[in-house]
């Protein structure tokens, strides 16, 4: 498709990313030591920022229900009161079940859509799916960017698609998944982030979790810097969601440090920062229990997740 189809959008000029510097900076941000009260505060904050996810072919209504229970009360048997997570993230057919389970609570329902994870379908079908999950009651919709179009340089097409998906999502929060594992370079990540933001993404998200590498610190840093520069230009605050491969509390805390350093306190809220993960929650609970009891805890005392 040629650029004449979309005359009002020109691919943005983005600054080039210094790869070595980005890696270096991400490494440095990973060396902060966070202990005791600051750690507890960070861990509790992370729970509220979690998109508790199940995206398996083998998902069943039962599994989604138990996931929702865990999202609402992460540790039912602890005498400690833990916050509920930010959202549960499921496949489109599970949206209604999740909606029912978390009705009347603070937990949002997020659904992947637009032919997750590949996005390999006609635009009309992808838009249709977004409308369907919106109508089924999803508060947040995670759509995938068309990497095929992006990698072949049809940036106007990518922009146009995301714009249509954004319109279709209506009031629901739109998170655009770039699938950075397929984008090869940080420059491409930077460009894709900017296009997604221009097209109306409320959040930009690293990965589907189906491709390795998924979320990494440097990639997230590049995306956060795009968000920062966009904010400085326009005053608009776009959210960030690293997803995939964040399994332990220590790594998650490092992401939090990075958000704080790059974007500041305004982004340290569940409205602007989320982590997509499935097994992270249990590790957060293990560390919180350890801080509380002074003893290393065991997953045996936690529900599966």
């Amino acid at each position: 498709m040629s650029s004449t189809d979309e005359p009002d959008y020109r691919p943005p000029q983005v600054p080039t990313v210094d790869e070595v510097a980005a890696n270096e900076r991400a490494d440095r941000l990973a060396t902060r030591s966070i202990k005791t009260e600051a750690k507890v505060q960070g861990l509790r904050m992370l729970i509220t920022m979690l998109d508790l996810t199940t995206l398996e072919g083998a998902d069943t209504p039962g599994k989604v229900r138990s996931l929702c229970q865990k999202a609402l009360t992460p540790a039912p048997h602890s005498d400690q009161d833990y916050p509920s997570v930010g959202a549960v993230c499921v496949y489109p057919p599970m949206v209604e079940i999740a909606r029912e389970q978390v009705a009347g609570t603070d937990v949002n329902v997020a659904s992947v859509a637009s032919y997750f994870p590949s996005g390999q379908a006609a635009l009309e079908e992808r838009v249709e799916e977004v409308k369907r999950v919106r109508d089924a009651g999803a508060d947040e919709i995670d759509v995938v960017m068309n990497r095929n179009a992006f990698l072949s340089g049809r940036y106007e097409r990518v922009h146009e698609e995301i714009r249509e998906l954004a319109v279709a999502s209506g009031d629901a929060h739109l998170k655009v998944i770039l699938e950075t594992g397929e984008l090869e370079t940080y420059d491409a990540v930077r460009l894709a982030s900017q296009i997604a933001i221009d097209a109306g993404a409320d959040f930009i998200k690293t990965s589907t979790g189906k491709i390795k590498p998924a979320a990494t610190m440097p990639v997230t840093l590049v995306m956060l810097e795009t968000i920062r520069d966009h904010y400085l230009d326009t005053g608009q605050k776009v959210g960030m969601k690293p997803a995939g491969g964040i399994r332990d509390a220590k790594t998650a805390l490092r992401y939090l440090v990075m958000v704080k350093e790059v974007l500041g306190d305004d982004w340290l809220t569940a409205d602007r920062f989320r982590i997509g993960a499935s097994s992270l929650l249990n590790d957060l609970l293990l560390q919180l229990e350890k801080e509380r009891q002074g003893r290393y805890h065991s997953k045996r005392y936690l529900s599966l997740g």
């Binding site: 002074g294 003893r295 290393y296 805890h297 065991s298 997953k299 045996r300 005392y301």
Partner: peptide, 8 residues
């Protein structure tokens, strides 16, 4: 002490 107290 840590060996005894480790719940895992």
């Amino acid at each position: 002490e840590h060996v005894g107290g480790h719940r895992d």
